[in-house]
Write a protein that binds this DNA or RNA. Structure first.
Length: 262
DNA sequence: ATGGTGGAGGGTCCA
């Protein structure tokens, strides 16, 4: 079974690339981020024609996440709990959706970028990571077979960025961001791509549109899969669909996938 | 310090 993540950076602008990628790589489950669309404008009919059910948590203009699946999925929650001061305790950003599908729990995650540092957005990122840690601790404690995947907007280690110096002031590499990332992993989750490629350099998933980042391979690794133990035991492979970043009208992220034994 | 690019949506905001 193949479980992929793809930050599409606008599902309407990206629809031809998305449908092409679904057809060519046939993921069983595809977690999408940055739909940049309200739920009712997501082209679910095109996705259904491609053979996918779609659970969508959209938002006007930015954010927005979805879970596409070959088999029907059952929504568990849309919106990350725990933000103070909001009526229902849910987030006012559409950055989290969780569902049961094909015998496992899957979450599609779009973690806040957090720039500039310091500032309110960085504070929000760190709060959000703390809330994510609390949510997934519950899944861990309940021993739910789980795949947490998406754009975490954290480059875990110095080798996960093309230039430590160029990224030094960025929210994606701050010690606080990395500490929050580690505090989630320390629950016991396996980070799949690095587990499969423990020694790879230049293992990137995002290349900025600006400054010729793609042609000079100035990438960073911020899209991840975290696996609970029974899923980790079934892990067969993990790869970046890097070639898609070089296509016409590409997203600035490449898709990333894992293969687990059926 | 600035600009470089791209998506959404009709302002700028976001990355």
């Amino acid at each position: 079974m193949r479980i992929a993540t793809f930050n599409v950076n606008g599902i309407k602008a990206r629809l031809p690339r998305l449908l092409e990628w679904l057809e060519e790589t046939k993921p069983d489950i595809a977690c999408l981020q940055e739909l940049k669309s309200v739920t009712e404008n997501v082209p679910v009919a095109d996705l259904q024609d491609a053979g996918y059910h779609a659970l969508v948590h959209g938002q006007k203009g930015f954010n927005g996440v979805a879970i596409l699946s070959r088999e029907p999925a059952e929504l568990v929650m849309a919106g990350l709990p725990g933000e103070d001061g909001l009526e229902d305790g849910k987030d006012d950003h559409a950055r989290y959706i969780e569902a049961d599908v094909s015998g496992l729990r899957v979450a599609s995650i779009y973690l806040p970028n957090g720039n500039p540092v310091p500032g309110a957005k960085f504070d929000y990122k760190l709060r959000w990571m703390d809330r994510l840690r609390e949510r997934v601790a519950h899944l861990w404690d309940a021993e739910v077979p789980t795949v947490l995947t998406g754009d975490f907007n954290v480059a875990p280690e110095p080798r996960d960025v093309f230039s430590v110096r160029a990224m030094a002031g960025d929210a994606l590499t701050q010690p606080e961001s990395r500490a929050a990332w580690r505090s989630i992993l320390s629950q016991g989750w396996l980070e799949a791509l690095r587990a499969v490629h423990p020694h790879d350099e230049e293992l990137y998933t995002f290349w900025d549109y600006q400054a010729g980042a793609w042609p000079r391979n100035a990438g960073i690794r911020i899209d991840h899969h975290l696996l609970s133990p029974t899923i980790a035991d079934r892990l067969l492979d993990a790869q970046v669909d890097k070639e898609y970043r070089g296509r016409e009208k590409a997203s600035d992220h490449a898709p990333v996938w894992i293969e687990i034994a059926d």
